[in-house]
Each structure stands twice: as structure tokens, then as C-alpha cells.
């Protein structure tokens, strides 16, 4: 198989995984679908010469986040899950429309070409490794990330702790 056809297969798999994620009746399966989508995305990232991002995607987005969702589903009662699944099944017809929509849009996009009327970035290609870019060149972002983590941590302290106590 050529490079390009592997890429096409991977992209198709990604879209199919995304479709399964939203169409499956049970929320639990939907969370697993999200993990599968993430895993496929990690493979794509790896093939796009971004191994570091791929590792993060695989461990955090395919590992941690689905676990968070699954434990949330576990904490919200089972009965709820059943009735939701029933509702979701009723809606399957609606999702058939989504399938058609995806196929049509895919067809249109494939025949359409992105107009090549813009210039490529000028200047020399930077040679720093991603670690250097992340830790040495983007300190402002690092401070921002600390802020994000702090906000997330307070979110957990305030929302999750109290909801357990009650």
C-alpha cells in the first residue's frame, strides 16, 4: 500500500469511529468510541511526524478522558442510562440523516480542491525540537497552562468534593 492510501484508510477509520461514537445507543459505548477515535488520531499524529503529541493524545485523550466520562456515567444512575438509551434508539432515524449528510459532504469535499492561492510560510524552517519550543520558547504559554491547571484544580475542589459530601 502506498503512503497516501494508508492515510486515506486512517482518515476513513477516524470518521467512522466518530460516527459510531455519536450513533451508538449507550452512553458508555459512546465514551469508548471516543477513546477509539482518539487512538486513531494518535496513529495519524504519529504518521504526521508528531510523535510527542501522539503520545499525549494516546495517554491523555484516549486514556484519561474516557475514564473520566465512564466514571461519570457510573455515578449517574443506571435507570437514567436505560431511559436515555431508549430515547437514543428512537432517534436513530435522525442519525441516519447524519450518515447521508456525512457521505454527501465527503463527496463534495473530495471533488472540490482547496484553492492554492496563498503563499507558503517564508523564512527558514525552524530546527528546534518540540521540547525546546515548549519549555524554552513559549514560557508565556506555560504560565497560562499553570493558570488552566489551577482553575481545573479549584473546579475539582469546589464541584467534585462537595458533590461527594452531600
Amino acid at each position: 500500500m502506498t503512503e497516501n492510501s494508508i492515510n486515506i484508510v486512517l482518515v476513513a477509520a477516524l470518521v467512522l469511529a466518530a460516527l459510531w461514537t455519536v450513533m451508538t445507543a449507550r452512553t458508555l459505548r459512546s465514551a469508548i468510541g471516543l477513546a477509539i477515535t482518539s487512538a486513531i488520531l494518535a496513529i495519524i499524529m504519529f504518521r504526521l511526524a508528531s510523535p510527542l503529541a501522539a503520545v499525549f493524545e494516546l495517554s491523555v485523550c484516549a486514556g484519561l478522558i474516557p475514564v473520566i466520562f465512564i466514571s461519570t456515567i457510573g455515578l449517574t444512575a443506571r435507570v437514567e442510562e436505560e431511559s436515555m438509551a431508549a430515547k437514543q434508539r428512537e432517534k436513530l432515524r435522525k442519525y441516519a440523516a447524519l450518515l447521508v449528510l456525512v457521505l454527501v459532504v465527503a463527496g463534495v469535499l473530495v471533488t472540490m480542491h482547496l484553492p492554492n492561492d496563498f503563499a507558503a510560510p517564508q523564512g527558514p524552517v525552524p530546527t528546534e525540537s518540540p521540547q525546546v519550543v515548549m519549555w524554552d520558547l513559549r514560557h508565556v504559554d506555560l504560565i497560562g497552562q499553570i493558570g488552566v491547571l489551577a482553575a481545573g484544580a479549584f473546579g475539582v475542589v469546589i464541584l467534585v468534593k462537595v458533590s461527594k459530601r452531600a
Binding site: 493558570g147 482553575a151 479549584f154 473546579g155
Partner: peptide, 10 residues
């Protein structure tokens, strides 16, 4: 974008 997101999450 990162700082807008810091503000939003808080």
C-alpha cells in the same frame, strides 16, 4: 487563546 481559556475556565 491560552489566556482567554484561563479566564473562561475560572
Amino acid at each position: 487563546y491560552v489566556f482567554i481559556e484561563v479566564t473562561s475556565i475560572s
